[in-house]
Computed example of a mutant assay.
Amino acid sequence: MSGHVSEATATELTDRLGLTLDPDLLVLALTHRSFSHEHGGIPTNERLEFLGDTVVGLVVTEYLYRRQPDRTEGELAKMRAASVSQRALAEIARTLGLGEYVLLGKGELSTGGRDKDSILCDTFEAIIGALYLAHGLEPTRGVVERLVGPTLESASRLGAGLDWKTSVQELAAERGLGVPTYVVDGTGPDHERYFTARLVLDGVTWGTGEGTSKKIAEQQAASAAYEALQQGEGTDGTEGAGAP
């Protein structure tokens, strides 16, 4: 796919979204910076991503406020964070097949960019930003609620998953394992950093994670550690002192 979107492709994607987009605006929403770098510095989707991030946040916040009247501010904040996380929005992007359409440079294509959470999440937010510019808030709200709604509904049932780091810390305390520490390593240049994290309790690695930010990597490590603690065994096969 080059720097344009065929009419058939545009129709295919907008049918999935439920709203139309001007071809030029659609191309802009799909243009990753890696593609721009290889094509003379053409505009990227980063400004649309910035806008879409705010629109998604507003719609999700109001949705939770109206649908969850008995939740505290802290609980609502956790539900919102879980619902608009990079991983959650990337999964929504996958259901739309956005990876098929995003315009990527050769380097990103060669390293599986079409299925990277960071790229998929950013592209989804850019698409929402484009829909907002084209149609305004109310039609775009309908798209966001339809696409993010299932995640929002499941967020109320996630329990520990709303904040893995807090949950694993509480569970570790219950098991007498002390306070978790995170060992984080980053690779790559500053603008393309990738992080791996290990959650360690009393010298034992209980979970590992990775992502495009320290926060994402640590949350994934905490999620894995929570499950391992429930089973009573660290990822290196060592039983914890507080394991049942």
Score class of each variant (00 low, 15 high):
residue 1 M to A: 10
residue 3 G to Q: 09
residue 3 G to L: 11
residue 5 V to A: 12
residue 6 S to E: 10
residue 7 E to H: 15
residue 7 E to S: 15
residue 12 E to W: 10
residue 13 L to H: 08
residue 14 T to D: 04
residue 16 R to K: 07
residue 17 L to Y: 05
residue 20 T to R: 14
residue 20 T to L: 14
residue 22 D to G: 02
residue 23 P to L: 10
residue 27 V to Y: 08
residue 27 V to E: 04
residue 28 L to R: 12
residue 31 T to F: 05
residue 31 T to W: 06
residue 34 S to D: 07
residue 35 F to K: 08
residue 38 E to C: 04
residue 38 E to F: 01
residue 40 G to Y: 04
residue 42 I to M: 11
residue 44 T to I: 01
residue 45 N to A: 09
residue 49 E to L: 02
residue 49 E to M: 05
residue 49 E to T: 07
residue 52 G to I: 04
residue 54 T to G: 00
residue 55 V to I: 10
residue 55 V to E: 00
residue 56 V to P: 01
residue 57 G to R: 08
residue 57 G to F: 04
residue 60 V to C: 06
residue 60 V to L: 04
residue 62 E to S: 12
residue 63 Y to I: 03
residue 63 Y to P: 00
residue 63 Y to D: 10
residue 67 R to C: 13
residue 70 D to C: 07
residue 75 E to I: 08
residue 76 L to F: 03
residue 79 M to G: 11
residue 79 M to H: 06
residue 84 V to S: 05
residue 85 S to N: 12
residue 85 S to K: 08
residue 85 S to G: 10
residue 86 Q to L: 14
residue 87 R to C: 10
residue 87 R to H: 14
residue 89 L to R: 09
residue 91 E to G: 10
residue 92 I to H: 02
residue 93 A to N: 07
residue 94 R to N: 07
residue 94 R to T: 14
residue 96 L to N: 01
residue 97 G to N: 02
residue 99 G to D: 05
residue 100 E to H: 06
residue 103 L to D: 01
residue 103 L to M: 04
residue 104 L to F: 04
residue 105 G to K: 05
residue 105 G to S: 03
residue 107 G to Q: 10
residue 109 L to R: 10
residue 111 T to M: 10
residue 112 G to I: 01
residue 114 R to M: 06
residue 115 D to H: 11
residue 121 C to G: 15
residue 122 D to T: 15
residue 122 D to K: 11
residue 128 I to T: 01
residue 128 I to H: 01
residue 130 A to W: 06
residue 131 L to D: 02
residue 137 L to E: 08
residue 140 T to H: 03
residue 140 T to Q: 04
residue 142 G to T: 06
residue 147 L to K: 01
residue 151 T to E: 14
residue 155 A to V: 03
residue 158 L to V: 00
residue 159 G to K: 01
residue 159 G to A: 05
residue 162 L to T: 00
residue 162 L to A: 02
residue 164 W to D: 03
residue 166 T to L: 02
residue 167 S to C: 03
residue 168 V to P: 01
residue 171 L to K: 15
residue 173 A to S: 11
residue 173 A to V: 07
residue 175 R to P: 02
residue 178 G to D: 06
residue 179 V to L: 04
residue 184 V to F: 00
residue 185 D to M: 03
residue 186 G to S: 14
residue 187 T to P: 01
residue 188 G to Y: 10
residue 190 D to T: 13
residue 194 Y to F: 15
residue 196 T to W: 15
residue 196 T to N: 09
residue 196 T to Q: 12
residue 198 R to Y: 15
residue 199 L to P: 08
residue 200 V to C: 12
residue 211 G to W: 13
residue 211 G to Y: 13
residue 213 S to V: 03
residue 214 K to S: 13
residue 215 K to R: 15
residue 215 K to T: 06
residue 216 I to H: 15
residue 218 E to M: 14
residue 218 E to K: 12
residue 219 Q to P: 00
residue 219 Q to G: 09
residue 220 Q to K: 14
residue 222 A to M: 07
residue 222 A to R: 08
residue 224 A to C: 06
residue 224 A to V: 08
residue 226 Y to T: 02
residue 229 L to Q: 06
residue 230 Q to G: 13
residue 230 Q to S: 11
residue 231 Q to H: 11
residue 231 Q to T: 09
residue 232 G to C: 02
residue 233 E to W: 08
residue 234 G to C: 05
residue 234 G to I: 09
residue 236 D to C: 05
residue 239 E to H: 08
residue 242 G to I: 08
